[in-house]
């Protein structure tokens, strides 16, 4: 039983029916997150990371839809599940944290309202108990004098503090999985580090699995157990964090690593991946990265199959690279 992963996506396709055609935002994504595991999902803007997250929690609104594929949560199929069933999972067994803490809390409702309703949506408890549990949750994420802060409005908190509130809300029911959609991107570096520390500590104490969405590889390096690299709606490479970062095989992953500023490479010019992400309505056939890849050749015009170049690693590339990215 314990080897059933918390989350398993199989060939997930989420599309948007737009006027210009069917937009394949998530295009055959397969990944899994084990119990208590932290999976970093990285990729450029528009690669489909958020859409993957919203698909998992069942919040894809029309014109979007899950066209095909499986989403297994603790062995249970979520695709096609009726809305009331999904709602029982949401917030209780699967929680989500968003990117912009300034926008995730309702500006006209007090913090206690927004926390207590989360508890009472899933459990029949008294207002007093919901309130005291909310207060404890605020304390756990490091909000000083939580009792007073409960009656405050979101605008009375800083961005970092608001994100702590959102994390406290996500943790209220001790969910098995938290989908964190770039929760630190909008914050200062120091605040970012504090938030990461809080989440890391609470998640590991409780054995919570995390799907941590980011475009920042340095965040992934310190936080995740495994990493999946997403490009144009597909996972192009995945594996243990150290293995992928020390020896990236996909040329897109190498480009991403090359563009991260780091201390021991100060003074060097940052590498940029040339070209632009192709429009999701008009992706090149075959490897979607081939318009920007230095190693591309005629073979890349067909779809690269999933390979396992090493144990625990997966890759979609005809001409894998080897070795660390040169500094």
């Amino acid at each position: 039983m314990s080897d059933v992963p918390t989350l398993e996506l199989r060939d997930l396709n989420t599309v948007f029916d737009t006027r210009a055609g069917v937009l394949r935002a998530v295009d055959g994504v397969t990944l899994s997150v084990g119990r208590g595991e932290v999976l970093g999902l990285v990729g450029e803007s528009g690669s489909g990371k958020s859409v993957t997250g919203f698909s998992i929690i069942g919040l894809i609104d029309p014109p979007g839809r899950i066209a095909s594929g499986r989403i297994r949560f603790q062995g249970r199929e979520l695709v096609g599940l009726a809305e009331p069933e999904l709602r029982r999972l949401r917030g209780r067994h699967i929680a989500m944290i968003f990117q912009d803490p300034m926008m995730t809390l309702n500006p006209v409702l007090r913090i206690d309202t927004q926390m207590m309703e989360t508890i009472q949506a899933h459990e029949r408890v008294s207002g007093a108990e919901a309130r005291s549990r909310s207060r404890d949750a605020l304390g756990q994420v490091g909000i000083p004098s939580p009792d007073e802060r409960l009656s405050a409005y979101p605008h009375q908190f800083s961005g970092g503090m608001r994100q702590r509130v959102a994390i406290a809300i996500a943790l209220l029911h001790n969910p098995a999985l938290i989908v964190a959609d770039e929760p630190t991107t909008a914050l200062d570096v120091t605040i970012q580090a504090q938030i990461l520390a809080v989440v890391q500590k609470l998640a590991s104490e409780r054995g919570t699995s995390l799907l941590w969405i980011t475009h920042d590889l340095s965040v992934v390096a310190g936080l995740a157990d495994r990493v999946a690299v997403m490009y144009a709606g597909r996972i192009v490479e995945s594996g243990a964090v150290d293995a992928v970062l020390d020896n990236p095989m996909h040329h897109y992953t190498r480009g991403l690593i090359g563009s991260v500023p780091s201390r021991n490479r100060r003074g060097h010019k940052l590498l940029q991946i040339p070209g632009m992400t192709p429009s999701p309505l008009d992706r090149p056939a075959g490897c979607a990265f081939r318009t920007r890849c230095a190693a591309a050749d005629a073979a890349c015009e067909t779809e690269p199959a999933l390979t396992r170049p090493e144990p625990g690693r997966e890759l979609r590339c005809f001409h894998p690279a080897h070795g660390a990215v040169a500094a």
Partner: peptide, 20 residues
């Protein structure tokens, strides 16, 4: 986002519309 967040908390559609 805050409406999406409210929905992600598992609130009923009625509460999302009539409160949030």
């Amino acid at each position: 986002d805050y409406i999406r967040f409210a929905r992600a908390k598992g609130l009923s559609p009625r509460r999302v519309v009539f409160v949030h």
